[in-house]
Amino acid sequence: MDPMTKMWMSLIGIGLMAIAAVIITFARIKTKGVIKGILSTVAFIMLCIGFLLGLLSII
């Protein structure tokens, strides 16, 4: 894999993790019930994808 592809994968992974942190913070402070669960699940999925992209950019 060329270095530019690794760079973009890493940046996208970092971006997804940052967005996930914002979403989970918003969900815990401003929402309740089902919406809180949905936002938390979406944030968790984004966090996992960001982690995998970061891991792949290292390999």
Rank of each mutant, 00 (worst) to 15 (best):
L11W: 12
K36Y: 09
I23M: 15
I38Y: 07
F51H: 01
M46K: 02
I49G: 02
R28N: 15
A21N: 09
I45W: 06
A20R: 04
F44L: 15
P3M: 07
G50N: 04
I14T: 05
L52F: 13
G33P: 07
I35N: 01
A43K: 09
V42Q: 03
I59K: 07
G15Q: 02
A21L: 15
M7V: 06
I12S: 05
I29C: 01
P3A: 12
T5R: 12
T5Q: 09
I12F: 04
I49R: 04
L39S: 04
F51R: 00
V34N: 08
G15T: 11
A27I: 08
P3F: 07
I19H: 01
F51V: 11
G37N: 15
C48E: 05
A18H: 01
L56D: 03
K6P: 00
L53N: 02
V22R: 08
R28L: 12
T31E: 14
S57E: 08
L56M: 08
T31H: 07
S10M: 14
F26P: 00
I45A: 12
W8S: 07
I23Y: 09
C48N: 03
G13T: 04
F51C: 04
I45D: 01
I23F: 13
I38H: 03
F26N: 02
A21P: 00
S40Q: 12
C48Q: 03
K6C: 06
W8D: 03
G37C: 02
L39H: 06
K30V: 05
M4V: 14
I24W: 08
M4W: 13
I19D: 07
M1L: 07
G15R: 03
M17Q: 11
F26K: 05
G54L: 14
M9T: 02
K32W: 03
S10C: 09
A43C: 07
A20Q: 03
S57L: 07
L56F: 09
D2C: 06
S40H: 11
F51K: 01
G13S: 04
M1R: 10
F26R: 01
L11Q: 14
I49E: 08
K36V: 01
M9A: 09
M7F: 14
V42P: 02
A27T: 08
I49W: 09
K6H: 08
L47D: 06
S40L: 14
I14L: 10
